Every structure is written in structure tokens, then in C-alpha cells.
Amino acid sequence: MPTSRSSQETPEITSYVAIGDSFTEGLNDPGPDGGFAGWADRLARLLAEQRPMTGSGHYDLRYANLAVRGRLLDQIAAEQVPQIAQMQPDLVSICAGGNDILRPGSDPDDVAERFEQAVTRITPHAGRLLIFTGFDTRETPVLKHLRGKIATYNAHLRAIADRHDLAVADVWALRSVRDRRAWSEDRLHLSPEGHERVAQLAARSLGVPAGDPEAPWPPTAPHTPAELRRENIQWAREFLLPWVGRRLRGESSGDHVSAKRPELELL
């Protein structure tokens, strides 16, 4: 598990800004307010628990989440990255480029170059920067064919992290999210338990105490080949085909969606 710095060496984090797409927005992890929570909200809570309470009953940690579903890397760089200079947070997390990699004809070398440009714009205004590798899609129908592109992009991300001294949450190596229960019905977004595993991984990557993201799943009865075929057909009809259709029409699930937590506010 990546823990490049111990908790004793981890600088104090009093403010945290999360930027990115649906992964960071927290899709398919229902929140207490009727919206979505997600790993970033869960990480913010873990960070907040390291801080004292204020007189108003809040934790002494300010948190903003600027992520919006469907956003491509250039959109994140244009809409979200510039806000970091104004906020000047102790920690920024960025997960971006995944939607670009999923597009036909995309070049992971080019996406990585643009990702590094975004990183160089963020680092002067953030105490620390946390990035994420892409998931291993070898068990995912259709997306498993993109595994090579994702691996190439991940290699670039690790090199970028080395060059800029960034923290890395290596979700590619996170074995627990290879379990079907880590994913929601659409197989594109994490389930609540999947988000919790990623939050724990992210916290440990920062040297912050957290549970074990690789804790064993409870035993479950295996699916028969016939059951798996039926599930795959239903998934393709209900989720894959509409997803492909949106891309062919140039539509995004994030059209007319704004950031859920646009300002740094106390938890």
C-alpha cells in the first residue's frame, strides 16, 4: 500500500479541494443530503477527524469539491484548476483524463502531457497534490480492451508524480476493487463500499490513519456462467448502449451540472 510519508511527517492539512470528474464527484454513492458523497467526501471526513472541533461544532477543516461528472481533462483544466490559485488549499486531489482515455482514438501520451501541464499550474498554489492512477479494467466487459491504454497512461502518471513529488493513490494495484461489489450497477462508477475503499487508500497515501482498503470481502456464492451472461446482456442494454449513444451524439452526463461544493467550507 503506498505510504510514501508517515503520519508524523505529513504536513498539517486544514483545507482540501477535490477536482475532477464523476469519480471525484462521487456518483452512485448516495449522500445524506440527497446528492452524492463519494471517496472525496469520505477522505475529507478522515482528514477532518485529525483536526480539533470549532466552537460552532464543525471540524477545523475546510473542504471544497469542484468535480463535475463527464468532464474531460481540458474542461477540468479550464474550469476547475484556475480556482486553486484563489483558494490556496493545503491539499488538492486531481483525478482527470479517464474520460479522455475512454474516447476512441485518444492518445495516452498526449493526455499525460496535458495532465502534467495542469499539475504545473496547481503545484504553486497547493501545499500537497494527490493524484490517482486509472483502474485495472481487465474484468470489465468492453473496457478491458482499453487496458493497454490505461496502463500506458498510468506509467506516465507515476513518472509525473516522481518529477513533481506528488502523492499517488494507486487504484490500479487496489485488488479489492476487482470485486464486483466495489462497483455500482452501471459498472462505470463505484458503489458506496468501493468509494470507501478508495478513500482509505487515498488517506493512507497521504500518511493519514484509515482502515484497510484491502480488507477481505465477505464470502458470497459464485455466479453461474448463465447468470453472468444474463447480467452482461442486461448491463449492455441498460447502461452501455446509452453511454455509447451519448458519446456518438457529443452529449455529456455533466451537461447543466454544477459543482456540488464550490466553496471551501467547514465540515
Score class of each variant (00 low, 15 high):
Thr133Asp: 06
Arg158Ser: 05
Ala78Val: 06
Leu72Cys: 07
Leu248Met: 13
Lys149His: 10
Leu43Tyr: 01
Thr140Val: 14
Pro52Asp: 04
Gly105Phe: 09
Met87Leu: 15
Glu238Met: 09
Val198His: 04
Pro30His: 09
Gln234Trp: 13
Asp110Leu: 14
Pro242Gln: 09
Ser176His: 10
His145Ala: 15
Asp90Arg: 02
Gln8Asn: 09
Leu201Ile: 11
Pro108His: 04
Arg261Glu: 02
Ser252Arg: 11
Leu61Thr: 01
Arg204Ser: 08
Glu79Met: 07
Asp109Tyr: 02
Asp90Leu: 02
Glu214Tyr: 08
Arg187Glu: 08
Leu143Pro: 00
Lys149Pro: 00
Arg246Val: 06
Ala37Glu: 11
Arg187Asn: 10
Gly31Ser: 06
Leu61Phe: 05
Glu251Asn: 12
Arg180Glu: 14
Arg180Gln: 11
Ile101Arg: 00
Leu146Pro: 03
Lys149Tyr: 05
Val81Ser: 02
Ala118Pro: 00
Arg204Phe: 01
Leu174Val: 08
Tyr63Trp: 12
Gly38Ser: 10
Glu139Cys: 08
Ala221Asp: 14
Ala48Val: 03
Ala161Asn: 02
Leu267Val: 12
Asn99Thr: 07
Glu238Val: 10
Asp212Lys: 10
Leu102Met: 15
Gln83Ile: 00
His195Pro: 08
Arg128Ala: 14
Pro192Lys: 09
Arg229Gln: 13
Arg175Ser: 15
Gly148Lys: 14
Gln234Pro: 05
Ser191Trp: 11
Leu241Lys: 07
Ala161Cys: 04
Pro108Glu: 01
Ser56Thr: 14
Arg158Glu: 12
His164Lys: 00
Ile233Tyr: 08
Glu193His: 13
Glu251Phe: 01
Ile131Ser: 03
Asp107Val: 03
Val198Ile: 15
Glu139Asp: 12
Gly57Phe: 10
Tyr63Ser: 08
Ala85Met: 10
Ala126Asn: 01
Ile233Val: 13
Ile122Asn: 05
Val168Gln: 00
Gly250Ile: 07
Met53Asp: 13
Ala48Pro: 07
Ile84Glu: 02
Thr3Phe: 11
Ala199Asp: 09
Leu166Ser: 00
Val17Cys: 00
Phe132Asp: 01
Gln234Leu: 12
Tyr59Lys: 13
Glu49Trp: 07
Asn28Val: 04
Arg71Tyr: 14
Leu46Ala: 07
Asp74Val: 06
Gly26Val: 03
Ala226Tyr: 05
Val68His: 05
Trp243Tyr: 15
Ala67Gln: 00
Arg128His: 10
Leu27Cys: 05
Asp109Arg: 05
Ser93Leu: 04
Ile233Asp: 07
Gly38Phe: 01
Leu72Ile: 08
Gly211Val: 07
Ala126Thr: 02
Ser253Asp: 10
Asp179Arg: 12
Val177Phe: 08
Glu227Tyr: 06
His156Cys: 06
Ala199Ile: 08
Gln50Tyr: 06
Val142Trp: 05
Leu190Arg: 06
Asn99Pro: 07
Glu49Asp: 15
Gly148Asp: 14
Leu130Lys: 02
Arg121Thr: 04
Leu240Ala: 03
Gly35Arg: 08
Arg71Glu: 14
Asn99Ile: 03
Phe115Thr: 04
Arg114Ile: 02
Arg128Trp: 04
Leu241Ile: 15
Trp217Asp: 14
Ala37Phe: 02
Ser252Lys: 10
Asp41His: 13
Asp186Ile: 03
Asp21His: 13
Ala199Thr: 10
